[in-house]
Amino acid sequence: MMNEVVYLIANMCFALIMAPLIDGIERKVKARIQNRRGPSIFQTWYDLVKMFRKPSGITGRPAALYKLGPLLYFSYLSAILLLIPLLFYSPLSFIGDIILVIYLLASSRIFLLLGSISSTNPYSIVGSNREISLSIFEELTIAEILGIIILSTNSLLTNNIFPAVPPVKATLILALILLGIISYIANQRLPFELGEAEPELSGGSVLEYTGKELGLFYYSHYIRRLIYISIFLDIFIPQTILIRIWLYPICLILVSMFFGIVEALMGRFRIDQALSFLKKTTLIGGVLLIAAVIGI
């Protein structure tokens, strides 16, 4: 019991502290690719602290929903940190929690979008609309991948699903590649970063947020990235504590550095290009799902 509480708190603290640091590392990598020196890896933390010190502004109507948007975004994401294996396995695992994780991810985003739409700024509404369109396609692919993973592990508990034990089927490996792609897309990284789209919509869904709310928004955003990468990693990394405790942080940093490199080399898609790309991934996912049900 004591151990489990320690694991929970360790998981929580690790994610909350590491999430902005990982972004700092990414920034450094991106800068080096573009022949710049780049800021220190703690720069993201400095930015956040500065934003949290500023007062917050209100434009939205209803103001309560506008204010609650980023708060609920953060709290729903931090609830996920309790349920998935991070530095240690998650002690709170129960039947069907993987579905709960997917729902929590989706609902956190819904709260953010409700908040940004209720700022009544048309740019925010356009950005949020794009994000909803993208997220519907993402959800289909995620559902397909979930189906394949559940078929090959026969369980609905995160602790039993992760990691996938051999013999691993071909469909599962392909589904994992797809999961990597989707976790890249769902993190709103560059070719798919259409909701904010700084040059086009000048901030889009976060346009009206300032000060503390903006800081909280970015903080949650980094946590969200960490969650997606962790779900992807959990499938490989064994749950033995001694291996996990060093392998997981290293892999986390490596994957996010890789994502950072890809992002540095990409330009932004138009919304229709992004959607047709996602349409292809859903089709591939569908084919894989049928193959997995047949038993390949």
Binding site: I99, A106, I132, L140, A143, L146, I150, I290, V293
Partner: peptide, 23 residues
């Protein structure tokens, strides 16, 4: 999802539809 086979494929579509409901 526990049933496997056809219900699982239908479950995937149902999960997709619930994100459409959100929209």
């Amino acid at each position: 999802f526990s049933a496997g086979g056809l219900p699982l494929i239908y479950g995937v579509f149902a999960l997709f539809a619930s994100s459409v409901t959100a929209g």
